[in-house]
Amino acid sequence: MAMTIHVDIVSAEQEVYSGLAEMLFAPAELGEVGIAPRHAPLITKLKPGEVRVKISDKESQEFYVSGGLLEVQPHIVTVLADTAIRAHDIDEAQALQAKARAEEMLTDKSGKVDYALAQAQLAEAVMQLRTLERLRKRGS
C-alpha cells in the first residue's frame, strides 16, 4: 500500500473529516498546494475554494472551505476551515432538479397538491443553490 498521511478537517462548528489519505490538495493563499506524506512542516492561510482528499487511486473526497488555515506535519495534516461543507452536500444538479420539481408541483393546480410541502422543497432548493453560487463567487 502507498504511504499515507493522517488528515483532519475541522470547521468552527464540527469535525468534517478525519482519516488517512494518500494526498491532500488545498487552495493556499499563494496558490494550490498538494501535500504528500513526509511533507516539510508548513503553515499557510487558505483561500476560499476546494480541499480535495485523495484517499486512494479510486477514491477521493472534496470539501469546500470559505477560508482558514492549513498546518502540515510530516505525518499529520490539519485543515482549520472557517466553514467547511462536503461538496456533495450541495450538489448543484440535484438542487436544480429539486427546484424544478417543486416549481412544477406549484404550477400544477389540477390535482391534489400539498402546497406547503412544495413550498418548503422550493425554499430548500433555492437556499442550496444560493450557497453554491456564493461559494463559487468567493472562490473566483
Binding site: E29, P41, L42, I43, K45
Partner: peptide, 8 residues
C-alpha cells in the same frame, strides 16, 4: 531543529 514554512 526545525521550523515551519510560512506562506505567505
Amino acid at each position: 531543529h526545525w521550523d515551519y514554512l510560512y506562506e505567505p
